[in-house]
Simulated assay, not measured.
Amino acid sequence: MEVYSLVMHQNTGQGISSLSNTQLEDVIAEIEQAIEWHQLWYKNLLRCLIADTPANEQDLSDNAHNLCRFGQWFNKLPEQTLNLHPYFSEIASAHQKMHQGAKVLLSLKESNSAIPVNLLDQFHTDLDSLRDYFEAINDELCELLHTRDPLTGATNRTNLVENLQKEHELCKRKSLSCALIMIDLDHFKQVNDEFGHGAGDKVLIALVKCIKSHLREYDQLYRYGGEEFLVCLPQTELEGAKSFSERLRAGIAALKIEIGNDKHIYVTGSFGVALINADDDIEAAIERADQAMYQAKKSGRNRVFVA
């Protein structure tokens, strides 16, 4: 399945982060294929310029950037896909400019004219620019995939502390509050024991989907442990974080999770809420949210406790 059919229905407001792990893998594969096509095109261009082989007529066209294999693929991408990342528009411009330069070089070669060094250098500058965009967007996609939990799609703990420190610094500069919420499913071991780990996986996937549906674009969700998740709410006071947690708690309790053979199960979660204080150590703030969550469990589960 090609990338344009995979991503055309995504919420472009969230950019590439709106893609699932499977979609990210497919987009990466498509871009790597595009890079391979372009390398092959460049080798053929060098044969024409150096070994005096006949030029491809398409490369002498004013529309060459739309006729190469990469151009044909790129032009099939819908606007929704191109809006997933600003580098897509940069790639379009760099690709067209590079082909224009290639046409000039090939035209000079066809007329047996000498190729000025400055034109050759400019062509390679444009080529390098295109490659840089390719590599940058591919690296970003791979980094996003690397920091994703493969089961649920929530961010894993790889860069958790670093990300929260950046958010903390931003809040301090703007004199804003930032809240953390630790969420732990109640009696999750019983789900695995009674219905199997496949059912447990479905519960975790449904849980993350529910949490994400409540988040703002700039909120962050991490899979902190097996059935434990951490939410970061920037620009949020304690009371707002508590209200958010209560809404989410009710949303999770209302989930009807299908586990096969017309069987459904219901789950609840315990919530611990804490603020990241101005002079806080991030790990200390996480610990306060974690301890608050344990207090919620001790108090009867399926409830919110504020540190």
Rank of each mutant, 00 (worst) to 15 (best):
L180A: 02
L119T: 11
T268W: 05
V161K: 03
F188G: 04
A34G: 15
L84V: 08
S20Y: 06
G196P: 00
V231Q: 07
L160S: 01
P86Q: 10
D280A: 05
S175R: 10
L233Y: 07
V27Q: 11
A292E: 03
L248A: 07
N75L: 07
L40C: 10
C210V: 08
N56C: 14
R288D: 03
L185T: 02
L255Q: 04
L204S: 01
C232N: 09
G196F: 04
D184A: 01
V273H: 03
I115H: 07
S17V: 13
H146G: 11
G196Y: 03
V304F: 02
H214E: 15
H146Y: 14
V161T: 06
K242Y: 09
R157C: 01
L45M: 13
L233S: 03
K209E: 14
A51D: 10
T12C: 12
D219S: 09
H65W: 11
L130G: 00
M293N: 05
H9W: 13
A253G: 08
Q23M: 12
K109D: 05
E217M: 14
N159Q: 07
Q10P: 00
A55R: 06
Q14N: 15
T125R: 09
I286F: 01
K109Q: 11
C48W: 10
D186C: 05
A114E: 14
G300V: 00
K189I: 00
P86G: 09
H65R: 09
Q220V: 13
L67E: 08
A94S: 07
L204G: 01
C171T: 08
N44R: 15
N44I: 12
T155V: 11
E79Q: 12
E258I: 01
G226H: 01
A307I: 00
A154E: 01
E169M: 08
L46P: 00
Q96S: 10
Q33S: 14
A285N: 06
F244C: 04
E57P: 00
I35Y: 13
I16T: 13
V117M: 14
K202G: 01
I286M: 04
G300I: 00
R249V: 03
N112M: 12
R157A: 00
D121Y: 07
H146A: 15
V231L: 08
A278W: 14
H9Y: 14
M293C: 08
R216I: 15
L176T: 09
V7W: 05
I31Y: 15
K263M: 11
I276R: 05
L275T: 04
N118R: 11
H168Y: 06
L40Q: 13
E79K: 09
H99M: 09
N261M: 10
L255A: 06
A136H: 03
H95R: 00
K189A: 04
I28V: 10
L84Y: 06
I91N: 01
Q10Y: 13
A278Q: 15
L204Y: 02
Q235M: 15
V161A: 04
T22F: 10
M182A: 01
Q10W: 10
Q165M: 12
